[in-house]
Structure formats: C-alpha cells, structure tokens
Design a protein around this nucleic acid. Structure first.
Lengths: 210, 210, 210, 210
DNA sequence: GATGAATGAGACTTCATTCAT
DNA sequence: TATGAATGAAGTCTCATTCAT
C-alpha cells in the first residue's frame, strides 16, 4: 500500500494503544485489546509493527515528539522575564487542554518505560536536555543583564524550572486535585521572584544585602 | 513462627523485590527472580504474600511509608523562611543519599503503579496531601506575617514547592545529569525569592512597588 | 468462526476430555492431555472453555443431557406392565451398547463430581427426578387399575426401579462381571412380579391372600 | 511408640481424612487440611502413611472393611424369604443411621476411586463378590425349594438385589429425597414378589401360567 | 517423635506471535 | 492484504513432601 496508508494505520494503532495504555497500563494491555480498539484483527498490528514492544516504543516516541514540539518552541530571543512567563504559558497550554490529566498519566508511564528501554530512555533524556538547554540559555542571558544571581548554575536553575512542569504532571497523574490556574499563578510568582512581598524584603535579604 | 520472623521474611522478600524491580521493572520481574535474590525457593514468597501483585503492593506501600516518615517530620512551628530551608533539607537528605538515583527510578515505578492500583493510588494521594498540607500551613503562616503575597493560594503554592522535589526525582530517574548541590542552591533561591538580584528589584516589583 | 465450528470444537474437546477422564479420572487428567488427544495445542481449549473445571462441568452436563434424552422418552400413555418392560428396555439399550462399561465408569465420576459441584449436582438431581416422576406416574396408573398394592408409595417404588438401573452401572463400573442379558431377565422378573413361581404363590400371599 | 499408639494415630488421621473428603472430595483435600482437622502438624501424617494416596487407600479400605463386616453377616442357613428380609434389614440398618447420607457420598467417592486404583478396585470387587455370592446362594436354595423360577441365573438375580442397595446409596448421595422407610417397604415388596396384587395375578402370569 | 517452614516439581493459564485461508 | 484461530513458550501459583530444629 501507499506510504500514506501505512502511516495512517500506524497512527490508528498508536492511538488505540494510547487509549488502552491509559486504561490499563502497558503490561496489562494485550495486543488484542489494541487491535479491537483500533477496529482491526488480531494479527493486523504485526503488519505495521515488529512487536508489542515496538508499539510501546512508537507510542512513547510519539508522545515525546509531541512534547519536544511543544517545548521546542521557546523563543530564545525574547527577554528573560517574559521567557519565564512563556515557559509557564507553554506548560499551561498543555495543562489546560481537555484530557490533560490522562496525558499526565500516560506521560508517567512513558517516563517509567524509559527507565527500562534504552531507546525511549535516550529519547527522553534528549527531550529533557533540549528544554533544559533552552531555559539555561535564558538564565544566562538574564545573568548577563545582571538580573539573576551570577553565582547560580544556569543548568541547575533550568532544572528547577523544568521541575515545576514535571512535578505538576506527577501530581495530576497521581490524582492530586490541582487548580491549574492557581498553580500557574504560584509558579509565576516563584519563577519571577514575586512570591515574597516587597515589604518583607529585608527578611529575605539576610544573606544577600543590597 | 514468631511474628518477628514473619515480618523479617516479608522484609527480606520486599527488599529482594525492590532490587529486582529496580533492575527490570515490575512486569519483567518473575517471582522466581525475587525468590532467588531473597535466597529462597520458588514457592516461599507465597507463604508471606498472596500473589505477585501483593508483593508489588507491599513494596509500593513500604516505599510510600518511607516517604511519609521522611516528609512527615516537617516542623510547623518553625518560622516560614527556615521552613523552606527545612523542606529543601529534608528533600536533600534523600537526594544526597547513596542510591538516591535508584530510589528515584523506583519511585517512578511506584507512581506509575499507583495510576492503576486503587490501594497504592490512595496511599500516594494521602502521601502527597500530607506534604502539601504541611507546606500549605507554612505558607499560610508566612502570609499571616505578611511575608508572602496574600493573593496566592497556599495549597497551590505548596504544590509548586512539592514539584521542585518531584521534578528532581523525575529528572534523575530519567538519567538527566543533576548536580544535587547546585539544584539545591537554585531551589533555595527560587523558594526564598533570592533568585533575582536586588538590583533588578524594580523589574519584579511591577505588582508590588516598594 | 461460525457457531457450528465453535460447537464442533467444543464437542471435540469434550470428547477428548471424556477419553482422558475415563483413562485417568478428572484430577489426574492434565489440560495438555485433553489438548493432545483432541489434536490441539496446549492453549487451544481455553478458546472454548473458561478453565479445566469448565471442561469437566461441560462434560458432565453433556453426559447428563445424554441420560435425560435417553430416559426422558418413557411413554406415560403405555400400560403399566409394558412400561416396566420399557424401563428395562430403555436401560438395556444403554447397557448393551459397546463401551457401556466405560460409560458406567464415567457416570460414576459424574455422580461423584455432582457431590461437590452445585451445578452438576443440581443437573443430576433434575435428571433423577425426571425419571422418578415418570416411573412414579406409571406406578400410580397401575395402582389405579388395581395391579399394584395401593399401600405402596409410588415415588418410593419408582426409586427402587431406578436403583435397578443405577446399581447395574455401579457394579459394571466397579468391574463386577455382569451378564447383561441375565441381569435384564432377573430385573424383569423382579419388576413384573414373576420372580416367584406361581406354585409358591401361597408363600408370598401372606398379606395378599387370593 | 507402641503398636497401639500407631494404630490410634492412623485411625485419627483416617477419621480426619474422611471428614475432609466428605467436605471437599479426595483431590481437593490437602494433606494440611487432614493434619489440621486431626490436630496434627503438617508433617505428622507422613510418620504413619507413605503418601496422600496411601491415606486415601487406607480410608477406602477401611470403608470397604466396614461394608464387608456389615454385609458379611448374612445368614446362609436362614430360609430364603426371611433372607431377603435380612438383606433389606442389613441394608436399612445402614441407611437409617445418622450420617447415612454422608456415608453414601463418601461411598460414591470410594467407588470412583476404585475405578483408578488397582488395590481399591480389587478390594471393592471382592466386596461385591462376597455379597453377591451370599445372595446367589440363597437364591439357589430358594430355587431348590421350587420357590424361584429355575430359569433365572442366581448370580444375576443376586446382582439385582445388590442394585437395590447400591442404587439407594447413589440416589441419596446425589441428594435425591428418599424416604428410607418407604423405600424399604417398596424393596421388600419387590424382592418378595408382593408388589403385584393377587387380584392382578392373571396379568402377570402371561408367560408363567400355573 | 513432633513440628511446620521450606522446597520445587508440575499444573493451570495467558497472550505475543504466526500462518493457513 | 486481512483475518482470527491456533500455537506454545513462559509465568504464576499450588501443594505433596522433606528435614532441620
């Protein structure tokens, strides 16, 4: 068949797999479940994928691609402060989408899978590194402008920023009740240093006097 | 035999299971693997556990208990600022321990498992809620003292703090190279509002002019 | 596949199971034995049956159906005397068939199984009750015609008639050498009151003097 | 220990086994069940029996001994008619005892077991043959006195008599509601030729005219 | 002799994968 | 190319039996 047909079938299967994985997890999902949800026969998936693991890997890689596409759009040319807001916004775009909680649960599975799969693991690390590099670059620019403490390690700061996104995913996946708007607000305050009231400024300047 | 013996055997098996799960993950671990690592025969685990799932659940619950014990010690009577440091310290105590990266990988599995298991899921939510409640309480105290913006929702702020811990676990589990000391430093700056230089104070004071 | 195909496979498996059960008994028969005898692979039976117990139950139920079909044909409209002969005949039809002794052994297993299985037990009781009801009805008709002692309880008389059939099954299953023709002749004499010579009539007429 | 002690322990175990077998059947009964019911440790039965099969065999043989003792008492010297009554009486003594229905269920298991076990099978056949021989002898005596049709085969007649006993066991084991007194009455009528009313005498004499 | 924890062979069952139609 | 029945390797779990205490 045509290349397009094959691609369409693959996506159809991956989509079915996603639904099943969400419902039951990777290892509790049978190939037959996937086939049934995809409206195909038991043997059909094997025309488009090597094995069940291959489907899992494809689904993971597809999920990671999605992430990469989303987070890969951070604009390095923007000013540091608005960039932090962009980080927040980019994240929130995902967190506000319908089914975001399901996506979170699936993401958790992908992360877990990456722990045991070399390929998925490598892809995930590449993903994380891409985002971290972007954010770190922004931090450096801010440091160059004298806005951020030069003693701080840009990659490490970037990792804390990334954690604010990842941690939300974890909590939502775990079923913690998160009010995304408020979480966003708190994140923004944290990331832009507005958490603390100016009137309490002296207190926080103990170790960093002006 | 004695209650103590039974408990010892259960722990021995859970410990073996932990090692196997870390090595291969839940579903790739065979009961025989666990038995072998525990130095027992194939059927022995079934004297102490109902089934493989029971072992998984026990191992998860044990891991969550450990977390709860660790994070349940936050001192609500302390001042807000030192409390943030305590949060950091409590977390860092875990992140600096040998095998912390392994623990992170295991934690990811527990989280994933909780997505499909009612019991583990409930325990995990209880865990997260406990921490969140503690941190939120601290935030409220800081707000009462006028240190933190009263417009922010304490639970949401707490969730961002928790994310800084969870996100680190995710990144380490994923194999991202994290320098824990520097991550700690960045976290501290973020949480205590010291990320931004005082000289850049005007910029962050948009909503809170001095 | 088609409904017919499924039914055919089920019968094929039940038939194989019957052979195995006969050879080794229920509990000594492995699923693999059944599969092998049926010319199938290890897992095949599970497409058509829930479990080994399900196969046993199906086989029992099939055996009981067979009985019911055979004994359910008694003709209530016939006269009492020829009915007893019909009972004998119906029974003998089964006892004379090739493999009747094997069937007897299998029947013993079904009875035994019914002692522990609610479903099979219920089916067996229904089976016995059906026959008993038929025979009892015949007895009543004979009593109405004044042929049989009205003091006798029809169901109980029916049970003794049934015993003449069941007892033969037991003895043959146990390996007792039974000459079916002669057993039939003795049964007929017993059931039709011809056991005793007319010349000895006075002796048996203690309670029923001519 | 003393011979008596060993015998006592064996009986204790056999008794426990009987209770378990009755509850669950042979193959569903675990050695540990038997040990528990007997108030012994898991390993204890192995001091007194070779294996589980050995316990089953012992229990069967014990049950058969009991039967043999009961039915072996038939008095060959008595007159034929009272002998049939004795047969009935001997049987009824067993059927009227408390727990007779349980005994019947267990007997069914023994019969079934005898189908697969050479030893038990041989013992059962010996049992049946003993009874049959006794009854056949009585029949012969009656024939010699001209009371019973000389054309009938004594062993076959005996087998029908035995069936009246075995069939009751089957029906009771199967859970059919049997009123033993009435069954006895019907049996007596059947065996002593009193089933048919004398007034219907002509009808039954079709083939045996005086 | 007694105990009962431990053993481990073996049964049941599942399900990824194949292949005849 | 699609189907889905069949395959059979492999895992979970059981329980008769052993043996150190």
């Amino acid at each position: 068949m045509t290349e397009a047909h094959i691609e369409a079938r693959r996506n159809q299967i991956i989509e079915a797999a996603r639904a099943c994985f969400l419902e039951r997890g990777f290892h509790a999902t049978k190939i037959q479940d996937i086939a049934k949800v995809a409206g195909l026969s038991t043997g059909a998936p094997y025309r488009y994928f090597e094995s069940k693991d291959d489907i899992v890997a494809a689904m993971c890689s597809e999920a990671l691609d999605r992430h990469r596409r989303r987070f890969g759009t951070l604009d390095l040319a923007a000013t540091s402060r608005s960039i932090f807001e962009e980080l927040s916004t980019v994240y929130l775009a995902a967190a506000h989408e319908p089914g975001a909680k399901d996506t979170a649960r699936l993401t958790l599975q992908v992360w877990e899978e990456s722990t045991h799969s070399d390929n998925t693991g490598e892809a995930l690390r590449a993903d994380f590194n891409l985002i971290q590099t972007h954010v770190a670059e922004i931090v450096k620019q801010a440091q160059a402008r004298g806005e951020i403490d030069n003693n701080l390690d840009p990659p490490s700061v970037a990792q804390t920023m990334v954690s604010l996104v990842l941690g939300l995913i974890v909590q939502r996946a775990a079923g913690v009740a998160v009010e995304v708007d408020k979480y966003e607000e708190a994140t923004r305050s944290l990331v832009t240093g507005k958490l603390w009231n100016a009137t309490a400024g002296e207190k926080q300047s103990t170790t960093n006097p002006t």
